[in-house]
Design a protein around this nucleic acid. Structure first.
Length: 641
DNA sequence: CTGGAGCGTCTTTTT
DNA sequence: GACGCTCCAG
């Protein structure tokens, strides 16, 4: 491919970011400055310069971003792009671990535990340690552990830092939690990163292999990397220092997940020889929108100095709507969308809010007006009970030691195997040194089970091991269908009649996606991994004729002609739990900045003077951030107009 | 011991 | 709406 094609249509700064080959590169890419284009072109450029595709690692945070990057690279390069590793931190690490752990005497078939599984496991841990989950809420303990893992602290390192009584208890829980994870051959999200770093650190020959393999590393959304991810990229780039990171400190919105904004602020200290390229020309929004967003975010202290500009002078003012009630606010938004629908495609209109719980009232309002919508909710589909059940059946087929999956499905549908029977079966497996499926199959040897329980357990065990035996030759969708049919799960739902039709449809949909996945060459184990790592937004279809709603977080990387930022109130944005900490407050401000910069042409900010709270109606006040927007950019409306 | 009914709790953001 | 917990009938 001629170099001109790769550089076509780029501005001088973008060209510089694409072509610079002299080592570490920091690309400060403001919102709407063509970040993905630069990443895509850079990969294409590297390949056009003779770099083998297989030696390029392009890391993103979300599957959606990875997918987009991949499609765009493919659109540019066709077949030649296929060897590029364009994936998320988590899937890249899972892939490396699965390949390398077996050589180090450990299992490469681990199951990935999602947050739901983690809570279940932690409940068991706390029970065993005799800690009340009132004083030690599982989610809180898990958060502390997650933070430790983000900072590459295993249980032992954590113990050294544990000073308070609470922390010593967390340490105990951490230790037992890790032991249980190891026993059931599972890893949580944070383990994937931490274990990879640990493996690299203690096995220099493995690290060297990947340093040689990945001669060029690109990291997207660098401002969102945590310590472990930072360390991972640093290790991989240590030998050749060909690391290009793209990010925007103003769009760092994941510190709650351990992201450390100093990774980007201090990149120049880590790599003193690095080149810095600032992309400040915005191709998305009007100047009015950019000015509004700038005036908000420039109140932050911890940020790099920069300001976006555009050739699109002026633009319509930002509408600020003061509503009487939450319902009134939603009605206003739905009404505006109805009016706008004749001018812009519905799919280019978005409603963004701080918390998922806020979606309901807008769903109702849009439904009332007959406006189609789709919700960018975190993981709604994959979180539905029956989808998780199905995933757990499949998990048990792939990993017969997965006790979390086992306990979830062993009595679903009811097989007369209650908690007491489950304890006996799990105990039997532990004592005899066999896995859980084998324990089921040999249930007749377990003392204390009743005759019917033994028969049911044995039947279930034989069914699952029978399916597992065919694992190598059967595609994922056949295995999924078999396991759901033969264990009686699907027949049970079908017998419930009309009440369960929706669930059955969901399961059919899951089987279809398994088929699509299998036809693309994926294995069952990979499908199981996908179910843990993928979320709903990854399947968001932007061509569908429907307006979009989602959290501010889920809107990152998207753009719309018209954006409604709703619930602009103290307690919602900034969120009540972020209001008394100055760092968290800055993050809330960045969140608003991200939301505002999603809009191309029209931006609405709405709030209500009263709102239905968990305990009755409450009075609310307008968000402090509104006063940071210059008055002349606003067109204020109220319900009385 | 199991399964079902009923009750309270929870939802900040996500891989 | 899902989940955990408690209580009670079988």
């Amino acid at each position: 491919m001629p170099e001109n094609d790769v550089l076509q249509g780029l501005n001088p700064k973008q060209v510089e970011a694409v072509r610079y080959m002299g080592g570490p590169l920091l690309i400060l890419a403001g919102a709407g400055s063509g970040k993905t284009t630069v990443l895509t072109r850079r990969v294409a450029y590297l390949i056009s310069q003779g770099v083998p595709p297989g030696s390029i690692l392009a890391i993103t945070f979300t599957n959606k971003a990875a997918k987009e990057l991949k499609t765009r690279i493919e659109a540019f390069l066709g077949e030649r792009a296929s060897g590029v590793w364009a994936m998320t931190f988590h899937s890249a690490c899972a892939r490396i671990l699965r390949a390398e752990l077996p050589g180090l005497g450990r299992s490469g078939r681990f199951t990935i535990m999602d947050s739901d599984d983690q809570v279940k496991l932690m409940r068991k841990v706390l029970k065993e340690l005799d800690l009340s989950d009132k004083q030690y809420p599982p989610s809180g303990v898990l958060k502390a552990i997650s933070r430790a893992k983000d900072n590459l602290m295993g249980p032992r390192e954590y113990a050294k830092r544990a000073v308070t009584f609470y922390e010593t208890k967390v340490h105990q829980a951490y230790e037992l939690y890790q032991r249980k994870l190891r026993e059931l051959d599972g890893m949580d999200f944070d383990d994937l990163i931490m274990e990879t770093v640990m493996m690299f650190r203690s096995n220099p020959q493995v690290l060297a292999k990947y340093q040689r393999k990945f001669a060029h590393i690109l990291v997207d959304e660098y401002q969102d990397t945590n310590r472990a991810q930072y360390e991972l990229t640093k290790l991989l780039a240590a030998a050749h220092r060909n690391i290009a990171v793209v990010g925007d400190d103003d769009q760092s919105i994941y510190t709650f997940r351990g992201a450390d904004i100093s990774n980007i602020l201090e990149f120049e200290d880590d790599y003193p020889e690095c080149r810095v390229v600032k992309l400040e020309q915005n191709y998305r929004s009007t100047q009015v929108i950019l000015d509004g967003a700038f005036h908000v975010v420039s109140n932050n202290i911890r940020r790099k100095d920069k300001r976006l500009w555009t050739v699109q002078e002026g633009g319509a003012p930002i509408t600020l709507y003061a509503a009487q009630s939450g319902e009134d606010e939603a009605r206003f938004v739905a009404g505006e969308i109805d009016n706008l629908a004749s001018q812009v495609p519905l799919s280019s209109i978005a409603i963004l809010y701080r918390t998922n719980a806020q979606s309901r009232i807008y769903e109702d309002a849009l439904r009332n007006r007959g406006i189609p919508y789709s919700v960018l909710s975190g993981r709604r589909f994959y979180d539905r009970k029956h989808i998780k059940d199905a995933a757990c059946y499949l998990r048990l087929v792939v990993n017969p030691r997965d006790v979390v999956a086992f306990e979830r499905i062993v009595n679903e549908p009811a097989r007369g195997l209650g908690p007491a029977a489950v304890r006996k079966i799990v105990g039997h497996a532990a004592v005899s040194g066999i896995d859980l499926v084998q324990a089921l199959s040999s249930a007749k040897d377990i003392k204390g089970l009743t005759g019917p329980q033994k028969r049911e357990a044995e039947k279930l065990g034989n069914t699952i091991s029978g399916i597992a035996l065919k694992a190598l030759e059967q595609p994922a969708h056949i295995m999924l269908k078999d396991v759901l049919e033969m264990t009686g799960y699907l027949p049970y739902l079908e017998a419930q009649g009309t009440t369960e039709l929706e669930r059955i449809d969901d399961l059919r949909e899951l089987i279809v996606s398994a088929r699509v996945f299998a036809e693309a060459g994926g294995t069952t184990q990979e499908f199981v991994e996908l179910l843990a790592l993928v979320s709903d937004q990854d399947t968001y279809d932007e061509t569908k004729d429907a307006c979009v709603m989602g959290t501010l977080h889920s809107a990152k990387g998207l753009e719309f002609d018209v954006v409604f930022l709703v619930g602009m109130e103290e307690g919602l944005l900034p969120h009540i739990r972020s209001m008394d900490d100055e760092y968290q407050l800055e993050e809330e401000r960045r969140l608003l900045y991200v939301g505002m910069t999603r809009a191309k042409r029209l931006l609405y900010l709405t709030f209500s003077w009263s709102r239905e709270m968990s305990m009755g109606l409450g009075r609310s006040t307008v968000s402090r951030f509104i006063s940071e927007i210059p008055r002349e950019l606003l067109d204020v409306k109220t319900w009385e107009d």
